[in-house]
Amino acid sequence: MENLTLVGVLAGSLGLTALARRYNVSAPLLIVVVALGVALIPGVPRIELKPELILTVVLPPLLYSTSLDSSLTHFRANLRPIIGLGVVVGVVTAVVVAFVVHLLLPDLPWASALVLGAVVAPPDAVTAVAIGRKLGLPRGIMTVLTGESLVNDAAALTLYKVRRLCLRVDPGSIPVP
């Protein structure tokens, strides 16, 4: 049943993306607005997908399509700002969010607070590149933006994996999905 739900969500997203291209609208923004509208309709069943499905089926093609537009030469030339923005700022943001969440919810384990920080920290690579293109940003800025978004996603996924390792060490915190 979950696979059928995933196929339905992906088909809906692809249909909305085609509609967005036809009317020259930002596809990610249209998908979010329509999903929010559908969620507010009374009686519509709640759709829940396992995080592993999103991480293994949905996210890689999105990141791959974004990476096709980036140049390895320009990526290497801008490696310092990309790493600085993608890893350092991403990890610092995740840790700060974890710290604030842990202060607000002291019963929440550090590993769970770190996961929340890892989820909130990275910007959406696909949306950032789409908006940058629409704004007509120069190639150098687009290279840094694309590289930072891709590296930031990798750093967030690494933090998610660290959380899973922390939970294995401290099994009393919360169950690992």
Rank of each mutant, 00 (worst) to 15 (best):
L85H: 14
A121T: 08
M142C: 01
G136F: 01
R139F: 07
T146F: 00
G117I: 03
R133H: 11
T146E: 03
D153V: 12
L114T: 08
L59F: 02
V100I: 15
I82L: 04
L103I: 14
P123T: 07
I141K: 11
L103C: 09
M142L: 09
V58C: 02
G84E: 04
L85A: 12
I131D: 01
I141T: 12
N152G: 13
R76Q: 15
P123S: 07
D153E: 15
V87W: 03
L103R: 15
A121R: 04
A130F: 00
L68Y: 05
R76W: 15
L62Q: 11
P122R: 08
A128V: 11
Y64Q: 08
G140N: 12
R139V: 11
P138L: 04
V144L: 00
V97I: 13
S149M: 02
D153I: 08
P122I: 11
L103Y: 10
N152E: 11
P122C: 06
R76A: 14
G147F: 02
L135F: 09
V92I: 11
T66S: 13
A154L: 15
L59N: 09
V100M: 04
I83W: 13
S71Y: 00
V129C: 06
P61H: 07
L79V: 15
V129A: 12
D107E: 15
A94G: 01
L116M: 12
A154Y: 09
L114R: 08
S67M: 09
V87I: 14
A94K: 01
A94M: 03
A130P: 00
K134Q: 15
V144F: 00
V120H: 01
P138T: 03
P123H: 09
S112F: 10
V92D: 03
G86F: 02
A94Y: 01
P138F: 06
S112A: 15
S112I: 14
G90H: 10
P106V: 00
V119H: 10
A128Y: 01
G84I: 03
A155P: 05
T127W: 00
H102T: 14
L103W: 14
L59E: 12
S65I: 08
A98L: 01
L108D: 09
R139H: 13
V97L: 03
L135H: 13
V120D: 00
A98I: 00
P138A: 05
V58T: 11
A125M: 05
N152R: 09
I83A: 14
V96L: 11
V119L: 12
P81H: 00
T146S: 04
D107N: 13
V115Y: 10
G84D: 01
G84C: 04
A155K: 02
L79S: 13
A125I: 03
V115P: 10
L150M: 02
T66G: 10
A130R: 09
P61S: 04
V92M: 05
V95L: 13
A77G: 15
V88N: 10
G136Q: 04
V119R: 07
F75S: 03
A113Q: 07
I82T: 02
L62N: 07
V126I: 07
P122G: 04
